[in-house]
Amino acid sequence: MPPAGDLQNPFATDSTNVADGSKIFSSMNCDGCHGGGATGWVGPSLVDGRWRYGGTDGALFQSIFYGRPKGMPAYGGILSPGAIWKIVSYIRAQPVPVTVPTESWK
């Protein structure tokens, strides 16, 4: 994907916006694909620090607003830009693990 430019989240990533974003994430059924806590299900994890289409504010906004191939719906017609930015705030506030927890068998 090309760089998403300099789109900036107009909302502060304070606890109120993050909490609002968490509620929208579940009420808009995002967790139905990305799992509770966005840890991955049919859709990939959004909290493992790895991004198919970029993890900046602007890239996340574009992914949610326009959708992505392989099933990510376009929420631009359903949610206001403000609501999408709050989801971005929620996702960006999640701690990213230092390493992805894969298994090594003894």
């Binding site: 991955g40 990939p44 994890s45 493992d48 790895r50 991004w51 198919r52 992805v100 927890p101 894969t102 298994e103």
Partner: peptide
């Protein structure tokens, strides 16, 4: 097949 999709066991 996808470097952006690494799942825990």
């Amino acid at each position: 097949d996808d470097p952006a999709d690494v799942r825990p066991p």
